[in-house]
Amino acid sequence: MVPLVAQITVSHYLVVGAVLFVTGAVCMATKRNILGVLMGVELVLNGANVNFIAFGSPFLREHHLGLDGQLIAVFVIVLAAAEAAVALAIALNFYNNHTTIDVDRAEDLKG
């Protein structure tokens, strides 16, 4: 079975989710700009959402999650928005107090 002409399955979606997740995680680890880190978080959450949607889709699998997959994805999106708002507020506060947004400079609590 050549994967490129085969019918789409849950696995295909999972691969997309995995790529998004890993990209986001690496983004979080390597970016020095605090907003870049935030973008990494968004990518990770989005990768998780792709998985939920894939498992809940009636087109991909007979024993799908049904509405549960989509409902959980709703909550993920809403909480991601909330998280972004708080993180942005923290970032702005950090910028106000330290006049930088480089996360490596946030070392006031280092013993």
Partner: peptide, 30 residues
């Protein structure tokens, strides 16, 4: 992708909240 998988509401919600809301906020922060 969401819309393709049959989750139209989720796809549009993604456009509305993530792209239209969260990312505007991010760009604002930038």
């Amino acid at each position: 992708l969401f819309i393709l998988a049959g989750a139209e509401f989720l796809g549009v919600m993604q456009l509305m909240i993530y792209v239209g809301g969260t990312l505007v906020l991010l760009v604002f922060g930038v």
